[in-house]
Design a protein around this nucleic acid. Structure first.
Lengths: 122, 122
DNA sequence: CGGAATCCTGCGAGATACTG
DNA sequence: CAGTATCTCGCAGGATTCCG
């Protein structure tokens, strides 16, 4: 699909899909967790904290499908499954970090604005 | 900002809230639309396209509360309400654009990965 | 240990109609 | 024109149970 015709802000549908992935509750947290290196299922679950097994499974599967993480199975006893960030996944994590930095930098300002706004509504 | 000391995923809660705002379906589109300058309610509605007035109202109100847009009322007949991006809002739009650029750049790769993945599942 | 399958719930979000 | 008020529905996301 011809991205070049895009006038600097016209989300061509596919873009907003990626955006929504970033906004989803767990994807970014999992990706960021994996920046530290390969990890196994319950390891990730422990590190992310608060995620249900169901959602971790879904998130990892989606990320794998998108080519953000690689899944490696070792048929030992007990079984081991390792998840590793691909270059694409790393790239996403970098971009997401910019956003996170922005959020961290302006969080106070935003909360302030909310307080003022709410006060005015009384 | 010293990200390196963060234990690999310590989203300070408020950050993920901002992230989810970015991922929400309309916020970014409205902000991007307003980059072109002040605009009125139905003007935004027309430009964004596909948004219901309900969602536009909600989105604008949230953005106003967060201090991203400023609302100016003119009691004419017919009434006019203008929405303008604040500096904070501009700043967000810039950051969001980086993400959108990333998304646009990797969209093809991701779709490719999905096709391969789905093919393997048969 | 690493999942899959199933059930349940709340909220995001659309459609529509009414108001000032 | 610029909203507010309802009603509704789909789906993200949680809890729980079962499987290899």
């Amino acid at each position: 699909m011809d991205v070049t015709t895009k006038p600097a802000g016209a989300d061509c549908k596919g873009v907003s899909e990626i955006l929504s992935r970033v906004g989803d509750k767990w994807t970014i947290q999992v990706v960021v967790t994996l920046r530290a290196g390969s990890q196994r299922f319950n390891g990730i679950k422990r590190r992310v904290g608060g995620i249900s097994q169901q959602m971790l499974t879904r998130t990892l599967k989606t990320l794998e499908r998108d080519g953000m993480v690689e899944r490696t199975v070792r048929h030992n006893t007990p079984p081991q499954v390792e998840y590793t960030l691909t270059p694409l996944g790393h790239s996403l994590s970098e971009t997401a970090r910019h956003l996170a930095d922005w959020a961290a930098a302006h969080r106070g300002e935003i909360e302030d604005n909310r307080l003022h706004y709410d006060a005015r509504q009384l």
